[in-house]
Nucleic acid binder design. Sequence first.
DNA 1: GGAGGGTGACTAAGCGCTCACTTAGTAGAG
DNA 2: CTCTACTAAGTGAGCGCTTAGTCACCCTCC
Lengths: 219, 219
Amino acid sequence: MSKPPATASEADPTGLDTEIAMLFPEVDSDVARRLIGSAMHAFAERGYHATTTRHISEGAGLSPAALYVHFKSKEAALYAVSRSGHLGVLDAIRAAADEESTPPDRMRAVVRAFTTWHVRYHTACRVAQYEIAALTEEHYAEIADIRRDTEQFVRREIQAGVDSGDFTVPAVATAARAILSMGIDVARWYQPGRSTDPDLLATQYAELAASMLGVRPGR
Amino acid sequence: MSKPPATASEADPTGLDTEIAMLFPEVDSDVARRLIGSAMHAFAERGYHATTTRHISEGAGLSPAALYVHFKSKEAALYAVSRSGHLGVLDAIRAAADEESTPPDRMRAVVRAFTTWHVRYHTACRVAQYEIAALTEEHYAEIADIRRDTEQFVRREIQAGVDSGDFTVPAVATAARAILSMGIDVARWYQPGRSTDPDLLATQYAELAASMLGVRPGR
DNA sequence: GGAGGGTGACTAAGCGCTCACTTAGTAGAG
DNA sequence: CTCTACTAAGTGAGCGCTTAGTCACCCTCC
């Protein structure tokens, strides 16, 4: 009874355990989850290169060597965080789009989901967006593929709206860039507590994106 | 006549020397400029912590110790880059706004200038935006002040348009965030050559921002 | 008793920064 | 024009420290 595994379920006021469980469903071991959570927070706060392997293991309440029981290297931990973060958003916006039918509604849902994700998982997103330069070439290439998919998805959604006549926008690629930038940048500036309410922000961003695309009011 | 100061003007195909001269007008020594230019590029490419003092000095064609003749520390070089970058944009958007009078025209000019700056000086901006966590507390506080000024400036411009009836936007602060994000994020994704033409991008972004703010066509 | 999670002690490499020193150039005195 | 005194820029070597990663050795539980 020295270490009850009930820590996660009975009381999780910050939602931290749930957050990590959501982001890394494939990681089964509890210790591995603690390690990756610690790594994620350290990378987000200090940056990959300023984070030492000791920071990571200490954050998980383990000795320096413990990291290497679960990860091949420090970079492997970064890759895990980065991959999950990127795959997560892509899933989220695809699911959101599937819930709606008309281009304006789909677009609003996508922006709302994209923003919500970057607020909810801003720690993971900060790592995913701003630390990928530290990945190995192979890992970077994999991440780049997911990013391309995400961008292409948004571009196609906009194009659909242009084709249907719902959107009026001169350059589809540029509009996609702008909308993605709005959401991604949330991970840079967002501070829990000090910022606008997440749901409100997501709705406002969705509306801003809609009028940016020239959606007529009421559509 | 041993060292003519004509180096910059006669042949500078990449615009690199001009870039550094524009960003660091207060740095008079040629060697110091080479050092800060090298530091800027290294920080942007690999990040502050992954950049060694040897990278910086080697990039300037000097020995490891030479950096410390011109800078108190590695962090001092980061501070110099960061400060110049931040002050530069603020100046640029203020100047741009001064050239116009009506809120829509002023806003378009501001976004155009903001975008152009982030494209032209994307290397400096990348450092200024994504490496400031490595600054000392005092230096960070100084930079934070400049950022606040920039954000406030944009917010006030939007408010002016709302007051005049030119803009229709529910939340001024959120709109400011969105517009700033579009521009800042350029520093993250922009790659010379592989991206849209800078001037075209700036104009498109200005137009997207305008319609985001609900400017009626023709205004 | 064996397999795997976990550890303390360790290492080779690399880090920011310093130091004693050389070099090039300048200025004033004679 | 030369000699001397002085300075600022730059260097090679290397110090003290930290880093990512290793390894022989423990536990604990099946």
